[in-house]
Structures are given as structure tokens and as C-alpha cells.
């Protein structure tokens, strides 16, 4: 196994582990507080503003809102493949592989467009 594969494997594993722990912790808090209430997913209302973008989610999680912590975990999960792509660019750069730096760069732009720019 070469360095590239080792780093990418580690990033994926680490990202999923961090996400899983945050979701688990937030989930336990959420069920402690809201477990006895009734679920309401039958009609679509959409999430409140604070659970929809990166700034709002980080803010809600720092205030220790259970749903904010879960959402931060899910954000880490979405960021995991993105981190993998960023890492690939770095590795291709070290190998001076211009062609695949460009290809990977295009993929990264598309990912960031969806997560950061779309409103």
C-alpha cells in the first residue's frame, strides 16, 4: 500500500468516526429531551434556518442544542469525501501530476459549489 492510499483510507475512517460520535452524542441528548414527544415527519416543513447552513449549524452546536450537534456530525460526514478530494489534490501536486490535479480540482469546485454557494 502506498502513501496515497494510506492517507485517503485514514481520512475516510477518521471522518466517519468523528461524524458518528457527534451524531451519537447529539442523538442521546435529543432523545433525553424530546423522546416522549410525538414525531412529526408526515408533512414537509423544511428545517429552521439555523440548521441549514454551516454558520448556523456550528453556532447551534456550540450552544449545545442537541439537533445542532447531530447536524454538525452530519456536516462532518458530508465534508469527509470533500476532504478526501482535497487530499488527493495535494498528493497529485507532490507527484507533479498536473493532469490529475486539474481533474480533481474540477470535482472539488463542484462539491464546494453545492455545499457553500447554493442558497
Amino acid at each position: 500500500m502506498n502513501d496515497m492510499e494510506k492517507w485517503i483510507g485514514g481520512t475516510l475512517r477518521g471522518g466517519v468516526a468523528v461524524a458518528g460520535l457527534l451524531v451519537l452524542a447529539g442523538g442521546a441528548m435529543y432523545l433525553t429531551v424530546h423522546g416522549a414527544a410525538g414525531p412529526a415527519y408526515g408533512a414537509f416543513k423544511g428545517e429552521p434556518e439555523r440548521l441549514k447552513d454551516i454558520g448556523g449549524i456550528v453556532h447551534a452546536a456550540r450552544a449545545l442544542h442537541p439537533r445542532g450537534i447531530i447536524q454538525l456530525g452530519l456536516l462532518c460526514l458530508i465534508a469527509t469525501p470533500i476532504m478526501r478530494v482535497i487530499l488527493s489534490i495535494v498528493i497529485y501536486a507532490r507527484q507533479k501530476d498536473k493532469l490529475y490535479m486539474i481533474i480533481t480540482g474540477i470535482v472539488l469546485c463542484l462539491l464546494l459549489y453545492s455545499l457553500v454557494i447554493v442558497r
Binding site: G26, Y30, G46, E47, L74, I78, P81, V118
Partner: peptide, 17 residues
């Protein structure tokens, strides 16, 4: 999936609970 998840998150389709 991460590419579309960003859009779903921003549009309020991803419910933490």
C-alpha cells in the same frame, strides 16, 4: 452523494432527528 447532500442541507431536507 456529498455533491447533492450540500444542496439538500441548504434547502432544509436533512432533519437531524
Amino acid at each position: 452523494a456529498a455533491a447533492s447532500a450540500g444542496i439538500y442541507l441548504n434547502r432544509g431536507y436533512i432533519d437531524p432527528g
